[in-house]
Design a protein around this nucleic acid. Structure first.
Length: 437
RNA sequence: UCCUCGGUAGCUCAAUGGUAGAGCAUCCGGCUGUUAACCGGAGGGUUGCAGGUUCAAGUCCUGCCCGGGGAGCCA
């Protein structure tokens, strides 16, 4: 008989509605406490946690000895009576009558006490099982699902851009190079240039996938492989782009608030900490940000992007997410449109989440429309013009004003969960010094 | 790449230059409502690696390796 067709199996999430009934559960035992002739097994399946009560009053001596001798993380099938019980972690427990071991587990390396990050990351394949880690991954899944739902409702098509690319999107020193039948290829940093081709066919597209950056960064905001969702829209200017980002970010957070209440509680993250529904994102110009920083004692030079301390100052003082808009042209990517009213400025914005766990989560802007300007920019950065001929063709044949942005999933999840480091927001983080597991 | 802190039992950490320890985990025993349970006992060490100083080095010095935090850069 196929395992899934066994309709007699229940799941932990149903238990509160099955009070007094005999139910079967399948899952993992993640902790055991015993007190004489009664033992408390902490149990979980994919839907939640409950407590198993094991006592010789309710089961045979052999099964009792089996149950109390289980190793941490043994997988089991149990049968017993469901009971709502305020003393039980999770609020519900099962008085066990029968227990069968499905998969043994001896000397499970992750204990109930503290561990260091290096040890936990070495054991990441097991660490994922910890309730907090599982909660983070459920929230991550919600964020990704909410992004797709929202974009679908807004008339977007998911557009799969290539992972192997022949050229740099931005700076060449940060690329991972791979051998492609004797040619050099690079792991993608962004699908944006390809999405710009996509909008001429579909008007609104987004790519959603991994981005690879060979940055030698060791900070709590950086991974060498991270996931990015990049909407690109025809007939959007830079301000439409910001208005859209605000609705997009609010939709993702609202979805998590609606669907991950227990997970947020486990993270000790209060709904009011992340509820953005009543907040308007502020737009600050680069000029004003520089003035503010200078007034606060920073030696900020006009024309450069902000450093970590400057960024932290701006994030800390804000009580809503915000945009920094109209950066100097030289501080932005080559494909950004200039401000028609001041050609020193780029129609580009960065988007920041505020507060203790805030950081830059999006970069975006209006794309340049002039072939001549783009050629000049490509030469300035000493990129190979031939590699970009296809990209310039988008301007040569029926170009339209268009904008887009990229949003970093890990930094967004980090903010929602209130996490110190982005490494916990992805199942298997890739960092400067870590390629396994 | 640079700055900074660290590497001691399976894990988290102690240890004035002078006998290498604790808590947790593991194993044995006790406890009928535990909440990272608790109580008693046992086993468990090439102090990251290689040199050096010293009567004596986990401790001081040099080099290397590995990791944490940060910078630059970025989502």
């Amino acid at each position: 008989m196929a395992l899934q067709s066994d309709k007699s199996i229940s799941r932990v999430s149903e238990l509160t509605t099955r009070e007094g009934e005999t139910v079967k559960l399948r899952g993992w035992v993640y902790a055991i406490r015993s007190s004489g002739k009664i033992a408390f097994l902490q149990f979980r399946d994919g839907t939640g946690i409950c407590q198993l009560i094991v006592s010789e009053n309710d089961m045979s001596g052999d099964e009792y000895n089996l149950a109390t001798g289980l190793g941490i993380e043994t997988s089991v099938q149990v049968e017993g009576t469901a009971k709502v019980e305020s003393r039980a972690p999770g609020g519900v427990e099962l008085i066990v009558k029968h227990l069968t071991v499905i998969g043994q587990s001896e000397d499970y390396p992750i204990g109930r006490k503290e561990h260091g990050p290096d040890f936990l990351l070495d054991k990441r394949h097991l660490w994922l099982r910890s309730p907090k880690q599982a909660a983070i991954l459920r929230i991550r899944s919600s964020v990704e699902h909410a992004a797709r739902l929202f974009l679908h409702d807004e008339g977007f098509f998911e557009f799969n851009s290539p992972i192997l690319t022949p050229t740099a999107c931005e700076e060449t020193t940060l690329l991972f190079e791979v051998d492609y039948f004797g040619l050099s290829a690079y792991l993608t940093q962004s699908g944006q240039l390809y999405s710009e081709a996509g909008i001429t066919a579909l008007e609104r597209v987004y790519c959603f996938g991994p981005s690879f950056r060979a940055e030698k960064s060791k900070t709590r905001k950086h991974l060498t492989e991270f996931w990015i969702v990049e909407p690109e829209m025809a007939w959007f200017d830079a301000e439409d782009n910001m208005e859209f980002q605000e609705r997009f970010i609010k939709a993702m957070v609202a979805y998590v608030l609606e669907h991950n209440e227990k997970d947020l509680t486990l993270m000790k993250r209060k709904p009011e900490d992340i509820d953005l529904s009543a907040k308007a994102f502020e737009i600050i110009t680069y000029d004003d940000a520089v003035k503010d920083l200078k007034a606060n004692g920073f030696k900020t030079e006009w024309g450069r992007d902000f450093g970590a301390e400057e960024e932290a100052h701006l994030i800390k003082k804000m009580e809503t997410p915000f945009f920094i808009y109209k950066y100097p042209v030289e501080a932005r990517a080559f494909y950004i449109e200039r401000d028609p009213s001041d050609d020193r400025l780029a129609l580009s914005s960065d988007t920041f989440l505020h507060g203790e766990y805030g950081s830059e989560i999006c970069t975006g802007g209006q794309r340049a429309s002039s072939v001549e300007f783009l050629e000049e920019q490509i030469r300035r950065l000493k990129l190979n013009l031939e590699d970009y001929e296809w990209y310039l063709d988008i301007r040569r044949y029926g170009s339209v004003p268009h904008s887009g942005f990229g949003l970093g999933i890990e930094r967004t999840v980090r903010w929602i969960c209130g996490l110190h480091h982005v490494r916990e927001t992805i199942p298997f983080p890739r960092m400067l010094k870590r390629l396994s597991p």
